[in-house]
Simulated scan of single mutants.
Amino acid sequence: MKNIEIEEDLYHFIASKTQHIGESASDILRRLVMPDSLPAKIEQVAVQEKTQSSLNMQSSLLAELANLKLLEMPKMVDRFLAMLALLHQYHAGSFAAVLALSGRNRTYFAITKEALLATGSSTNPKQVPHSDYWVITNNNTVKKVTLVKEVAQLLGYSEVQIEQLIALFCPEPA
Rank of each mutant, 00 (worst) to 15 (best):
A82T: 11
A40F: 09
K75T: 09
I42W: 10
A46L: 14
Q52W: 11
F95T: 01
H88S: 00
S53C: 12
I21R: 11
A82D: 02
L68A: 10
L38S: 12
P35R: 04
P39Y: 13
S60W: 08
L65Q: 02
H91E: 05
A97S: 11
L86Q: 01
L29C: 10
E64A: 08
D36F: 12
L32G: 08
S26W: 13
V45C: 00
M73V: 02
L70E: 07
Q89A: 10
L65S: 01
Q58C: 08
V47K: 06
A92K: 15
A96P: 00
V33S: 04
N67D: 15
K41A: 02
K75G: 01
V77P: 02
E72N: 13
Q58E: 07
E23D: 03
A100C: 06
S26M: 08
S26P: 05
P74N: 10
D78G: 00
Q48I: 07
V98K: 04
I28R: 07
M57Q: 14
G93P: 07
E43H: 12
L55S: 08
R30P: 06
S24N: 06
L84M: 12
L81S: 05
A63K: 14
S94P: 03
M83F: 01
L70G: 05
S60K: 13
A25G: 02
L81K: 04
S54L: 15
E23M: 05
Q89L: 11
S94N: 11
A82F: 10
K17S: 07
F80P: 06
D27Y: 02
H91V: 06
E49S: 04
E72S: 10
G22C: 07
V45M: 11
S54P: 05
V45K: 14
M57D: 09
N67E: 15
L32T: 03
L32C: 04
T51S: 14
H88Q: 07
H20T: 13
L65A: 05
E64G: 01
P35A: 01
Q44K: 13
V45G: 04
S59L: 12
L55E: 15
V33L: 15
L55Y: 12
Q89G: 02
N56W: 13
Q52R: 10
S59R: 12
L55G: 00
E72T: 11
S59P: 01
R31I: 06
E43Q: 13
L32Q: 12
E23Y: 08
Q19M: 14
R30F: 03
L87K: 03
R79H: 01
L38C: 01
E43C: 03
H91I: 01
A63R: 08
Q48F: 11
P74T: 14
A25I: 15
M83Y: 06
P39V: 04
V47H: 08
L68W: 05
K69Y: 06
A100L: 07
L61I: 11
L81E: 00
L86A: 07
F80M: 03
A92W: 03
N56K: 14
I28T: 03
V98D: 05
A85K: 01
A92V: 09
A97C: 05
L99H: 06
S54G: 07
S26N: 14
A96I: 01
F95Q: 02
D36C: 08
D78S: 14
L86P: 07
S26F: 15
L71E: 09
S53Y: 13
D78L: 13
H88R: 00
G22Q: 02
A100R: 12
T18R: 15
K41P: 01
Q48L: 13
M76A: 04
L68I: 11
P74Y: 09
